[in-house]
Design a protein around this nucleic acid. Structure first.
Lengths: 207, 207
DNA sequence: GCGTGTGAACCTCTTCACAGCG
DNA sequence: CGCTGTGAAGAGGTTCACACGC
């Protein structure tokens, strides 16, 4: 596969973007591949190769113009405008996200839903929790929105089915259990438990 | 590097373990490589190769004994007993974790700390938030514990420094900003914002 | 027959090293 | 002189295909 669509590259671009955002905010206007490599957990060679896939953005001898490079990367990732987030689950985790947002990510939570009628009507951040039946009322459907699953353990599949049923094609699952979706739906997850397992393994193998 | 220490393999083992846990709970006692592959997002060949690195656990013609295989994998990962979690940050996310735990992961939060004296003394799950100064009082130090950073955006580095100062060598950072730690400390992160970027990219490149 | 275990082929990703340009 | 851009080399990971044993 063409390297421009490789997950490893795109993931690093996302890191570079974050790092560049901070640099720009700090008034830095030129960065080197070395500068980006450290905080992003990679090497300068890798940074240069990643960027060279999409064009020649640097100036030899000095580095990359931070602001321009950031714009280019955002363009490549398609995050110049970010899709709205639709949260499923108004429990502890769901509310924490509704209230706190995704700090620094540039994403905003547009609506919060739950299957539990006990929770509908309650506030969550600046929003009111709605029942999942009301997903039908979302202007424009869910096709151009990202669904986030943060429900009671064991009910993630149900939430995914609801999202898919209402046309959602991009899902981030915060629950840990396996979830299956149709071929044409992208499902990603944050793997907190797996990260802990990897940390535990590293801890044990230090001696 | 020896494949037994490759992150890709260990990450998949963690997935297999989760899947096997559910299978065992459902009373299933033999699983095939095919059975594990689907939910874990990989192929049967990969499952077999992964497992064969550590021994011959299967029976040809039938499959793997679920319970035994689970035990073996837990052994390899070193998660037969999981290290206690020490939370830094008693804000929304920190409290959500203190209250809800890590569902299904087999990890327990032992204590919650914050640098903010306004928060110390308040309840978080079944625990009381303590000031980070009191980390010194943790029996046995932080060496055999995992520190979890869930603090106000922009203060993750401070939290990491505190943890490392008290002897912590394994850190899971939930904040998004870059954090640097000494060479001998393992730092991992959950990358919610990056996952969203990857979902956005996939969404845009569908057409 | 069925599913594991595994060498070999294949492919992707990373690192090296240096030419090229500001 | 410094740092980018990049072919070439190297390492690592994945897939194939089939022999083996239950």
């Amino acid at each position: 596969m063409n390297p421009a669509n490789s997950e490893a590259v795109l993931r690093r671009l996302s890191h570079y973007a974050r790092c560049l955002g901070l640099a720009v905010a700090d008034g830095i206007d030129t960065v080197t591949s070395e500068y980006l490599a450290g905080p992003c957990g990679t090497t300068s060679a890798s940074v240069r190769k990643d960027l060279s896939i999409f064009g020649e953005f640097g100036k030899r001898g000095s580095g990359y113009p931070a602001r321009d490079l950031l714009r280019e990367i955002r363009e490549v990732l398609g995050i110049t405008e970010t899709p709205p987030l639709v949260l499923i689950g108004a429990g502890r985790v769901g509310r924490a996200i509704a209230e706190g947002g995704i700090p620094g990510g540039g994403y905003t939570v547009e609506a919060v839903f739950d299957t539990d009628r006990e929770l509908t009507g309650l506030p969550a951040g600046g929003l009111i929790v709605r029942h999942t039946d009301e997903l039908a009322g979302m202007e424009g459907g869910l096709e151009d929105r990202i669904g986030i699953i943060a429900v009671t353990p064991g009910r993630a599949q149900e939430a995914a089915d609801i999202l898919v049923g209402f046309g959602c094609r991009s899902i981030l699952c915060l629950n840990m259990e396996p979830v299956s979706v149709p071929e044409d739906v992208t499902l990603r997850r944050t793997e907190m438990a797996t990260e802990l397992d990897l940390l535990t393994h590293a801890m044990n193998s230090r001696r």
